[in-house]
Computed example of a mutant assay.
Amino acid sequence: MSNGPARPIATPGCYQLPEDAHLALEQTRDRLRLLACLAAPRSPHDDLPEAAFLLKPAALAHCFQELADRLDRILQQVHWPGASPSA
């Protein structure tokens, strides 16, 4: 008889990441790749000091803050086997 879902046996020194947190981590990686693509120069002229960057600094800061917040939420879901849950 079981008292709930079975927890996977963890290897000492390893952490456990819930499946939804893993998916969020993959989505965050994909957003970072998208931002890198948006910021990449399209021509040699785009890399010159006088070239205009189409993303406003506030918009770029918002994107990075959103990604940092997502990573914080993901990291809060990490479980270390044998550690007592934090309150």
Rank of each mutant, 00 (worst) to 15 (best):
M1N: 10
M1F: 06
N3Y: 06
N3F: 06
N3A: 06
P5V: 12
P5S: 14
A6Q: 15
P8C: 11
P8Q: 09
A10M: 07
A10F: 05
A10W: 09
A10D: 11
P12G: 02
P12M: 07
C14G: 00
C14L: 00
C14I: 00
Q16I: 00
L17R: 07
L17A: 03
L23M: 10
L25I: 13
E26N: 13
R29Q: 13
R29M: 04
R29P: 05
R31F: 13
R31N: 13
R33C: 01
L34M: 12
L35V: 06
A36E: 11
A36Q: 05
A39G: 11
S43P: 14
E50K: 02
A52G: 06
A52R: 07
L54F: 08
P57Q: 13
A58I: 04
L60D: 10
A61R: 05
H62E: 03
H62M: 03
F64K: 02
Q65R: 04
Q65F: 01
E66V: 04
L67Y: 05
L67V: 00
L67H: 02
D69C: 07
R70S: 06
D72Y: 00
R73G: 04
I74L: 09
I74D: 15
I74V: 14
V78F: 06
H79E: 15
H79N: 09
W80I: 12
G82A: 11
S84F: 10
S84I: 02
